[in-house]
Simulated scan of single mutants.
Amino acid sequence: MSFDRDSLATAIAAHGPVVRVLVAATAGSAPRDAGTAMLVWEEGQSGTVGGGALEHEAVRSARDMLAAGRATAQRRLPLGPALRQCCGGAVTLVWERFEAGDLPESLPRARPLGPAHEMPEAVARKRDTMRPGAAPALVENWLIEAALPEARPLWVWGAGHVGRAVVSVMAPLPGRAITWIDLAPDCFPDTLPEGVTAIPAAAPAALMPRAPVAADHLIVTRDHDLDLALCHAALNHGFASCGLIGSATKWARFRSRLAALGHSNALISRIACPIGDTSLGRDPQAIAVGVAAALLRSGNKTMTRDRAV
Rank of each mutant, 00 (worst) to 15 (best):
A229V: 02
A124Y: 06
L138F: 03
A11V: 00
M65N: 05
S264N: 13
S61W: 05
R176S: 12
H15N: 09
L107G: 09
G246D: 07
G44C: 10
T302V: 01
M1C: 08
R164K: 14
A165F: 09
V94D: 01
C187R: 15
A198L: 03
S46I: 00
P174S: 13
R125F: 01
D182C: 09
G69T: 07
L261D: 15
G238Y: 07
G52Q: 06
G290L: 10
A24S: 00
T191W: 12
R257T: 04
L22A: 08
V94L: 01
A272T: 15
V139K: 15
D102A: 13
F254L: 00
A24Y: 01
C231Q: 00
A110Y: 01
R60H: 12
A293L: 04
D102N: 14
L39C: 11
S29R: 14
P115Q: 12
R222P: 13
D128V: 01
G262V: 06
D283A: 10
A165Q: 09
I219W: 05
R97G: 06
V91Y: 09
L244M: 08
L183G: 02
L296P: 03
W142I: 04
G88N: 13
D277Y: 06
D190V: 00
A272K: 14
A11R: 02
A30Q: 13
M130F: 10
I144D: 09
L39A: 08
L183Q: 14
F3A: 07
R60F: 11
L154N: 06
A234Q: 02
P104F: 03
I245Q: 01
A165C: 04
I199P: 02
A292H: 06
I219D: 08
R84Q: 14
S298I: 00
P78L: 05
P132N: 02
I144E: 12
R127N: 09
L93T: 10
G281A: 08
G47Q: 03
G243F: 09
L103P: 00
Q74K: 15
P174E: 10
R127H: 12
R60L: 09
P172N: 11
A90V: 12
L107S: 13
S247C: 06
